[in-house]
Design a protein around this nucleic acid. Sequence first.
DNA 1: TTGTATGCGTTATCAA
DNA 2: TTGATAACGCATACAA
Lengths: 344, 344
Amino acid sequence: MGNMTIKDIAKKCGVGVSTVSRAMNNHPDINPETKEKILQTIAESNYVPNNSARNLKRTDAKAIAVLVKGIGNTFFNDLVSGLERECQRMNYSCILQHVEEQEDELDIALHITKEKKPRGLVFLGGSFSHPREKMEQLEIPYVLSTIRAADMEEKYAAVSVDDFKESYKMTEYLINLGHERIAILTAPKEDKSIGKLRLLGYRKALQDYGIPYSEELVSYMNAEEDRYSFRSGYKLTKQLLQDTEFTALYATSDTMAIGACRALKEAGISVPAQCSVAGFDGMDTGEFYIPSITTIRQPVEKIAKATADLLFDMIKGKEKPHQLVFEGELLKRESTVPPVKRKF
Amino acid sequence: MGNMTIKDIAKKCGVGVSTVSRAMNNHPDINPETKEKILQTIAESNYVPNNSARNLKRTDAKAIAVLVKGIGNTFFNDLVSGLERECQRMNYSCILQHVEEQEDELDIALHITKEKKPRGLVFLGGSFSHPREKMEQLEIPYVLSTIRAADMEEKYAAVSVDDFKESYKMTEYLINLGHERIAILTAPKEDKSIGKLRLLGYRKALQDYGIPYSEELVSYMNAEEDRYSFRSGYKLTKQLLQDTEFTALYATSDTMAIGACRALKEAGISVPAQCSVAGFDGMDTGEFYIPSITTIRQPVEKIAKATADLLFDMIKGKEKPHQLVFEGELLKRESTVPPVKRKF
DNA sequence: TTGTATGCGTTATCAA
DNA sequence: TTGATAACGCATACAA
């Protein structure tokens, strides 16, 4: 039987449709026996309630939407998987929507909110610098995951590591290894999000250790291109090598670090012997790479779970928006060693 | 204004709701001027039609569902992105659903079909060996993407490379380099899908070139684990190294190839000097890896687009299910060289 | 070319 | 504890 409806079930059980609805939705005011019988019948009939009808009636959909900006960074894939799993656990649908680099994630969010009526939103990636008034048009709960704007409104819900601190940690580690000329691959100049924070962490560490900050060691991604990708890491390093010298290179993502390694290799520079390379994120690929990539591991599973939990709690009204910060872990691996002293 | 409906627009324009509906849905029987005016008003009011109501009325949702089995293989991510993009182009929603290794993708498909009423389905990954009768319960069009069962029903729609042929190509290439002891990392023994086909291609090539097939060179993935992942490549190679010797290793995915490289490295075997390594898929990560990984490039974008096109055509009734085969490309890269003659 | 009225499958309100 | 019935927002058959 192709298209059973709630009516068919009702008829089959000799009850009214509202009783069937109650049975399905765990309403309290129903006779346990009736309920049992109805659920039984439903199971046997392999009837599945029509989602659209439910959502129409409910005026919202039992779903959350996840907006992902930037696909070159495979880091998000793990997060998305985690979020999707949490949704399944909560019996929510997960609407996935990619946002192109040049698109405005907030516009898309606004649109999807009206169209699909999800109960909540997760923003992944992108630099999040929207005017407050525009953000307020978003009338449903949302969580920024692994995003944190430099000047972020405190009232936004967000889950992430402390990018400034973690980046400081990494830079400090490189400095303590003895590096002084540390190049960095970072987000476009305009970035106000994690890219900026990581750059600031880098600068602060240099400053604290009395190492002059030099613009020529900073390579900014191209705003139009896919950010944090293998290719951008490769290209930025190529450019860098033409202009300057350094004993360590800090790429602000693992994928970029691997791209960087190839550029170094093509320039005849061996990693880590002649140049140390560090990444950020802690992805599998960096663990298996040779040399394995020193990195800051973000606790992806925890972040995914916390993001989902926070969002669901906000949807239930059990929580107000607030910010959760997880500790990153500095993974010292093969790609970083003390510098060979060279003269410049 | 938070919740505009079609009525509000109708009122605003001084027309009936059906006229508004016609304007939105490109119906022919409408005065171009009226239509223009209505669309104008809609744009100004930032009204977005309620999807659930539409879908309810239509009895199906303007959506396709994509079922992805196996998340360790990042190859699928690119495919999913491509599919999602095509959906956006066609103004379809894309429902993404991950399927765990031990779950039955067909059961999930059957369920989602009833619940969300998508107009079509895409299956990614998984070995597809379901009884014909059960498949026939699926009453909407579906396409198997980058899957092909060894004994697949001809009437299934499928888009992929010819895994047998491509695998043959790769093995032949390794043989022509001079390798005779070629280990292979392959799907679990029970697999009846691309894993089996790739293994068969390998066997056939060996046979054609008079090289004896040896079970000890075949390392089967664990059925419970995440397939085609870095980790499985790593583990399988570790095991292999304990049991036997070989001059080339053919991993049936790029991710596994990279995992294998690490296991070889830990065993003190350098790639490619002492052991060649080849992959399959043609992912970015293999291009940037050092040494870059020889592989069979699957034309992901083309496959994604063809999958979507075929599915949409089937939905429109313009096409019957059929199978599309794309040519893979053997990318000869740094990870494979002629063998150093050793004695065994 | 247009408007009115009906129904899609649910959930929620109300009266029984 | 139940059942009839009215929405939910839209698309469409039918009448105008």
